[in-house]
Nucleic acid binder design. Structure first.
Lengths: 163, 163
DNA sequence: GTCTATAATTTGATAGAC
DNA sequence: GTCTATCAAATTATAGAC
């Protein structure tokens, strides 16, 4: 799952095969199929694990401000990219969603819905939902720019005016 | 090229094959290879044509303001999505860039660099470049949200505070 | 410019032994 | 849980005729 996650964040759903993963893990592809019946099922499982980890990392702190909530999301994205130069998994999968199984698409939608809902509540005020959409769009788009420029400075400039 | 562009905008580089395109065009895959030696070469050609069309559509009008320049970009993205529900081609390719040939990656980088340069000049002022990065990130990210929600309203909320 | 035919490889997935 | 072996299909790409 770690290897699959890296490959997806780098090159998308088509960016890995069971043989790739098996070779890198030192086993055979049939052994991967023992754990995940299909590639879609494995991708959905990897995505769910990624989402769980993400929402733990952005968990609200008592008495935080709207700016602090936005900063928590920003830092989660930023540290992810600066650690290994790879994108947000859901940004990649979201961009190529037209070619993914419903099984995977539903996990992607659930992730963004939960982000928007969580951010909206923590931002508060009249335009909370629109600001939540703006934050998520800027973070995901900023990741694309950073990966294309191969420079986290592109991300930093993109998100500088956010919070 | 029209068919390839649609497929890429829907499901990325892995979202089409020469046989797919040939079948939909009513010819054979060998005939597609007559025009494009490799899949990477075709993708690069499609991307360049897309970029040319894009920069024509956002060409500056005499005496425009910074807000009007941003609005031109916003409308180019918005109309593209609302026309057929598909993403910006460079948003898709940018997200999965880790698995693309250098031949394609260089076209992607050139597109974003030209966008940033063009927007920076038309926005002007002290933070022009940072604002340009913010605009591009929000537009690309907003496209991802719109395609996942299957609703242009997600894009509209994401970009509402831009200009 | 299109076709038939095919090469060479990769892919997702399965059966069954250990 | 891992293995060997294999299948059926798809993929990118090429050779050569019309």
């Amino acid at each position: 799952m770690n290897l699959a996650e890296d490959h997806i964040r780098d090159a998308g759903y088509a960016g890995f095969s069971f043989r790739d993963l098996a070779a890198e893990a030192g086993i055979k592809s049939a052994s991967v199929h023992h754990h995940f019946a299909t590639k879609s099922a494995m991708t959905a499982a990897v995505a769910k694990r990624y989402a769980d980890r993400f929402f733990l990392s952005v968990a609200p702190k008592p008495g935080e401000s709207a700016s602090e909530a936005i900063a928590a999301y920003r830092e989660a994205f930023r540290s992810s990219f600066s650690r290994d130069g790879r994108m947000c998994l859901f940004g990649v999968l979201g961009a190529e969603a037209g070619g993914l199984a419903p099984e995977v698409a539903s996990v992607i939608l659930a992730f963004f819905q939960r982000c928007i809902e969580d951010l909206s509540q923590r931002i508060g005020g009249t335009d909370a939902q629109a600001r939540a959409f703006q934050v998520m769009a800027t973070l995901e788009g900023g990741m694309i720019l950073a990966r294309i420029y191969k420079d986290v400075a592109a991300f930093d400039q993109a998100v500088a005016a956010l919070a």
